[in-house]
C-alpha cells in the first residue's frame, strides 16, 4: 500500500514539475507549482514527518507561491510576450540538470564510502514530532528563540523604514 502511494505521488510530482516548466502562461506555472509542493507534502506524510508537512503547506503553498502570483499579477501580464520555454539556455540547463541527477544518484548509492555521518539518535523530547520541536524551542533552545523574536522585530522596522515615503522636508528640491 505504502509503495503504491509513494510511486503515485512521485509520478504526480514529476508530471506537475514538467508542467511547471512547460506552461507558457506564468500563472499556470505557479498553479502547477502549488500541485508539486502539495504532493511533496504527501511524501512527508509517508515519512511520518507531520511538522514538515504543516510547514510545507503553510510556507511554500500558502506563502511563497501566493507571493509569486501576486508578483505576476502586479506586473501587467499582457506586456510580457508569452515566451517559448525552449530558449537559448536550454542545452546548458539540460547538461546542468543531468549533472545534478548523476551526482545525487551516485551519492545515494555510494555515499557511504565517502562520507561518514553520525548515527541517528532517538528523539529525547517525547513522542510526536511537532510536540518535540515545541519542547525543544521552549526548553534548551529558548535563548536563540527569543533572539529570533527580536530579529523579526528588526526586520519589520527595516521593512517599514525602506517602504515609507520620504517626508516632505527631507528631500529639498534643488
Amino acid at each position: 500500500m505504502e509503495t503504491l502511494i509513494f510511486w503515485s505521488l512521485s509520478g504526480l510530482i514529476v508530471l506537475f514539475a514538467l508542467l511547471v516548466i512547460s506552461a507558457k502562461n506564468p500563472v499556470h506555472s505557479a498553479i502547477f507549482l502549488v500541485g508539486t509542493l502539495l504532493f511533496m507534502a504527501g511524501l512527508y506524510i509517508l515519512l511520518d514527518a507531520e511538522f514538515i508537512v504543516g510547514v510545507q503547506v503553510i510556507v511554500y503553498v500558502g506563502g511563497i507561491t501566493v507571493l509569486y502570483l501576486f508578483v505576476i499579477s502586479l506586473i501587467v501580464l499582457k506586456r510580457i510576450p508569452l515566451e517559448s520555454t525552449l530558449n537559448r539556455q536550454w542545452p546548458a540547463a539540460v547538461i546542468a540538470g543531468l549533472a545534478v541527477m548523476v551526482e545525487v544518484a551516485f551519492f545515494l548509492l555510494k555515499g557511504d564510502l565517502f562520507f561518514q555521518v553520525f548515527e541517528k539518535k532517538k528523539m529525547i523530547y517525547g513522542t510526536g514530532e511537532t510536540a518535540a520541536i515545541g519542547r525543544a524551542l521552549y526548553g534548551p533552545y529558548v535563548f536563540p528563540f527569543e533572539i529570533a523574536t527580536v530579529l523579526l522585530l528588526l526586520a519589520i522596522i527595516g521593512a517599514v523604514l525602506m517602504s515609507r515615503k520620504p517626508e516632505r522636508d527631507q528631500t529639498p528640491e534643488s
Partner: peptide
C-alpha cells in the same frame, strides 16, 4: 556557543547593518 545561536545572532547583526547602509534612501 552554539551553531544555532551563532547563526541567528549573525543575521541579527547583518540585517540591522543592511538597513543602516541604505538609510539615506533618497
Amino acid at each position: 556557543a552554539d551553531l544555532i545561536t551563532l547563526y541567528i545572532c549573525l543575521e541579527f547583526m547583518a540585517i540591522s547593518v543592511y538597513i543602516l547602509v541604505g538609510y539615506l534612501k533618497a
